[in-house]
Amino acid sequence: MNFFTQIGILLRKELVLELRMGYAISGILLYVLSTVFIVYAAFFQGVNSPMLWVTLFWIIMLFASVNAIVKSFVQENGARQLYYYGLLDPLAVIVSKMIYNISLLFFLSLLTWAALAFIVGNKVEEFSAFLLALFLGSAGFSILFTFVAAISSKADNNSTLLAILSFPLVIPILMTLIKLSVVATGMLEDTGVGKDIGILVAIDLVLAGLTLVLYPFLWRD
């Protein structure tokens, strides 16, 4: 089996598993909706602040992403890992997981956006810029969380470990994303948008490169 066939098969497996165990994805959807509702009740009654909107959007996204990704290695128990180990290229495993998580998070971010727009009101004016921010954000989150989830899945209390290991690393991504999204709401005229996009792309590429280099050392037990 060549590399790309392996990735294709693994992606299909992820999707089939996700749909078959419907509770995981619907749980996250419910999580997003109820958080948006709480956020509306707590912050937005009579308040119109794009800055607050953007910040809360990304914080909801951050926690939704952690919840969505933490299970991506937990569901692979030891026996299945051994099975993969004999059968597959480690890079195909991690790349398929990254691609799957990027699409999942991108979908999740669109959904969060829709929910916030529906309940709180849409504050985004430049749609293409915001979509770009969403894509770069989901890419950064999913690459980082996938890698850290791979580390923390080897420990016992892995969801705490995931947060401890990944939150410091996610701060620069989050700060740049918030800046970029605030520009997309039209509240701030920023000429340095290109630089921010450059920083995000660079962070994403560095994280992806490191993950590819280091994952083969992680996965065998």
């Binding site: 080897k154 420990a155 016992d156 470990l161 401890i164 290991l165 410091p168 690393l169 701060i171």
Partner: peptide
């Protein structure tokens, strides 16, 4: 913080 996480990670195993 990233480096403090290194020490915590060691404690987790």
């Amino acid at each position: 913080l990233i480096y403090s996480a290194y020490f915590i990670l060691r404690g987790a195993f």
